[in-house]
Computed example of a mutant assay.
Amino acid sequence: MNLSSKLFQKDIEQVPTRNGYGEGLVELGQSNPNVVVLSADLAESTRAKAFGEKYPERFFELGVAEQNMMGVATGLALSGKIPFVSSYATFSPGRNWDQLRVSVCYSEANVKVAGSHAGLSVGPDGATHQALEDIAIARVLPNLTVIVPCDAIEAKKVTLAAAKHQGPVYFRLGRAETPVFTTIDTPFEIGKAVILKDGTDVSIIGCGQLVYEGLLAAEELSKKGINARVINCHTIKPIDKETIIAAARETGAVVTIEEHQIHGGLGGAVAEVLGANMPVPMEIMGVSDHFGESGEPRQLLEKYHLLAPDIVRAAEQVIKRKK
């Protein structure tokens, strides 16, 4: 698998996933004249600003009016444009979920929704701005593809792929700097999970920045004689059933890890697949029915037990439950 040469080094490059989105938009602006970008007074924070500066005639600043922004995006999509809606995930798809449901998804409008500042790693902004429910409220909607890129390089790939995909797409981005551990050669395809490390004892299935913590955990587990498979399940919907079922069948135990509530997110999606096809012992790691709080990103991930040492413990526990 093509991963960073500095995968386990302390000086691995750290870049927010939202930066990959901004870079992808600028590239799309050059290659596709139908791409337009909408902002709800957060162009700088969501990294949509660079597109607006280079292509001002295709950039729409709608102010703090996320519900209206989704409606405008629908109109643009039905007129043949490819609109990218840019805001914080707590506001989009949070505040404008009704418009996403009825205007976009029911109409199958070709709208792309970028929800930035998702998860606990928003940090000091605190609970009101830490989207921990967005995967759940997005993946329940018919016709909506849901993606969570693992690093900035993959976020750019997601942005480019979303423009080519016909139909509504929601993808989740982060504020904090996180390790860039994939490369331009690492495979990415909507709906196809990526096995980053093979293994036979337990499968660690993650999305977003915590995929990297899964790799760190697998490295530690190997020192204990445990061979862990690590899967980047970037697409939550449509989920890659084949890869997940094979992982459960071949390793006999599964740990999921996500920066989201344990209800309705990646863990729930994986459990739905395995419950119907290949039941095995499973641990779902995430935020356990709590709101977030203010703090530095790393401190919060440590408090809510979402780092590599926590994954190691979960893996050891779930292996003990194997028959």
Results as ranks from 00 to 15, higher is better:
Ala269Ile: 00
Val230Pro: 03
Gln261Ala: 01
Gln261Asp: 13
Leu144Asn: 05
Ile190Asn: 07
Ala65Pro: 05
Ile245Glu: 07
Asp134Val: 09
Gly115Lys: 06
Glu283Val: 11
Ser222Leu: 13
Arg321Tyr: 11
Pro149Cys: 10
Ile205Thr: 11
Tyr88Ile: 11
Val169Gly: 10
Ile147Trp: 01
Asp240Glu: 05
Asp151Ile: 01
Ile12Arg: 04
Lys54Tyr: 06
Phe84His: 07
Val140Phe: 00
Cys233Asn: 10
Asn277Met: 14
Ala228Trp: 05
Ala162Tyr: 04
Ala118Tyr: 01
Met69Lys: 12
Gly52Ser: 07
Leu301Met: 14
Asn34Glu: 14
Asp151Arg: 02
Val35Gln: 11
Leu141Asp: 03
Ala253Met: 00
Cys207Ala: 15
Gly206Pro: 11
Trp97Phe: 14
Gln67Leu: 08
Gly29Asp: 13
Lys224Asn: 09
Cys105Gln: 06
Arg298Trp: 09
Ser86Gln: 09
Glu258Leu: 10
Ala269Ser: 15
Lys320Ile: 00
Trp97Ile: 15
Glu272His: 05
Thr46Gln: 07
Val36His: 01
Thr251Trp: 11
Glu213Lys: 04
Ala217Cys: 04
Ser45Thr: 12
Thr46Asp: 05
Glu250Trp: 08
Gln99Val: 00
Ala271Arg: 08
Pro83Val: 04
Lys156Tyr: 14
Ser5Cys: 03
Glu293His: 13
Leu301Ile: 06
Tyr170Phe: 14
Ala73Lys: 01
Val148His: 00
Gly80Ala: 13
His234Tyr: 14
Met1Thr: 11
Trp97Ser: 09
Glu220Tyr: 03
Val36Arg: 00
Ile231Gly: 03
Ser288Met: 12
Ser4His: 06
Thr235Ser: 11
Val15Asn: 03
Ser121Tyr: 08
Val111Asn: 11
Asp41Met: 07
Gly286Lys: 06
Val146Asn: 10
Gly52Arg: 07
Lys322Glu: 14
Pro83Lys: 05
Ser45Trp: 01
Ile262Arg: 12
Phe188His: 10
Glu27Ala: 15
Pro16His: 10
Ala193Gln: 04
Gly275Pro: 01
Leu301Pro: 04
Gln130Ile: 02
Val15Ile: 15
Asp134Leu: 06
Val169Thr: 00
Asn110Leu: 06
Ser116His: 13
Asn277Arg: 12
Pro179Tyr: 07
Leu307Cys: 12
Thr17Tyr: 01
Phe51Asp: 06
Leu7His: 12
Ile239Val: 15
Leu100Phe: 05
Lys197Tyr: 01
Ala109Ile: 10
Cys105His: 00
Glu108Leu: 12
Gly22Ala: 05
Gly167Ile: 12
Lys241Ile: 04
Leu100Ile: 15
His129Asp: 02
Ser79Arg: 14
Val287Cys: 07
Val318Trp: 07
Val280Gln: 02
Val230Thr: 08
Pro297Asn: 13
Leu28Trp: 04
Asp289Phe: 10
Ala247Lys: 07
Gly267Pro: 08
Lys197Met: 07
Thr17Ile: 07
Ile12Asp: 04
Glu296Cys: 09
Phe188Trp: 08
Ala218Met: 01
Thr74Tyr: 00
Thr186Cys: 02
Gly52Asn: 03
Asp240Thr: 01
Gly267Arg: 06
Lys54Thr: 14
His260Lys: 12
Ser121Arg: 08
Leu173Glu: 09
His165Tyr: 15
